[in-house]
Every structure is written in C-alpha cells, then in structure tokens.
C-alpha cells in the first residue's frame, strides 16, 4: 500500500525521540544507536514525499536541543544525510536488501563524520574509535527492518 498518512511518520519519530531521551549511561550511552536518524532514514527512503530534507532538519534541531550541543550541527548533518538519501532513493528501491543496508551504513557514518567535523570546528576534542559505535549498532538495528515485513519500498519482504 502506498503510504499517504503523515501520522505514522511523526509517531515513529516521537517514539524514536523518547528512546533517544531514555537515561542512557555508561557503555550503553556509547553504544546507543541514533534512533531518530534511523527512523528518518527509513521514512526518507520509503516515502520521500512525506519525510524529506525539511523533516530531517527539524529532527536534527530537536537532537541539538536534547544533546545541548551547538544549535544547528545535527540539523545540518541530518539535512545533508537526508539529501543523499533522497537523491538515490529511486535507485535504492531496486537494490537488494543487503545493498540497501550497506548504503544506510554509509549514510550513518557520513552523518557522524559531519557532526565530528562541525564539533572540531567549534573546539571539541578528538574522540576515540568508539565514536563510531552508534553507526555499527545502528546498522544492526537496521537488520530489524530487513527481517521484518516493513521493507523500505513498501513490498512485503518474501524474496
């Protein structure tokens, strides 16, 4: 079925926001996937007419608020990522699920690198390799999308 309702988009984004706001601490905080980014990527790849660069930008702004970092750095990173997601969205729908997962992984890494560059410009310190753990846990969470029936092009995943 073609997704036309905006409701699931905003509800899933809200749910992702609550997940992101759970009081994570210690190793779980380092490993925590970017729930909001994953939800955004899912919707931009599945329904770009509902969730586009603007949505990504606003979601990034909310992430900026809850992380308490510089205003606009996650917004810029999410908008850029959504741009690449939207640009190749039509082609991506023809890829198989593993190629799609690979592309999503690249996008996750790209977002983190963008945020890192912006943070370094504003005087942050260079983090260790564990900075990229959220991308890895994120792509593991993306497997859930693959093995569930909510394939990004709306087909049920039976192949």
């Amino acid at each position: 079925m073609r997704t036309t309702s905006l409701k699931p988009v905003y509800f899933s984004l809200l749910a992702a926001l609550v997940l992101q706001m759970l009081p994570w601490s210690g190793i779980a905080l380092v490993m925590r996937p970017e729930f909001i980014l994953l939800t955004l990527l899912y919707w931009t790849l599945r329904a770009p007419h509902l969730c586009n660069i603007g949505t990504a930008w606003f979601a990034g702004l909310v992430v900026d608020l809850i992380t308490g970092g510089l205003f606009g750095q996650y917004a810029l990173a999410f908008a850029l990522t959504a741009f690449f997601a939207v640009t190749y969205q039509r082609r991506l729908a023809l890829f198989n699920i593993w190629q799609q997962a690979g592309y999503v992984f690249l996008l996750l890494i790209f977002t983190q690198v963008t945020v890192l560059i912006l943070k370094l410009f504003s005087g942050g310190e260079v983090p260790g390799w564990e900075y990229f753990f959220p991308s890895i846990s994120g792509i593991l969470l993306w497997q859930f999308v693959i093995f569930s029936r909510i394939n990004i092009d709306g087909r049920t995943n039976q192949a």
């Binding site: 603007g54 990034g60 917004a75």
Partner: peptide, 19 residues
C-alpha cells in the same frame, strides 16, 4: 532536493554561527 538542501544548510550554518 538540491534547493531544499541549500536552504536548510544555510539556515543551519546561520544557526551555528549565531549560537
């Protein structure tokens, strides 16, 4: 998409600079 990206990128850069 390029126009949207340009608009939002400029907006966020302005925000970053302001903040």
């Amino acid at each position: 998409a390029t126009a949207r990206l340009f608009f939002f990128a400029v907006l966020s850069l302005v925000l970053i600079a302001t903040d």
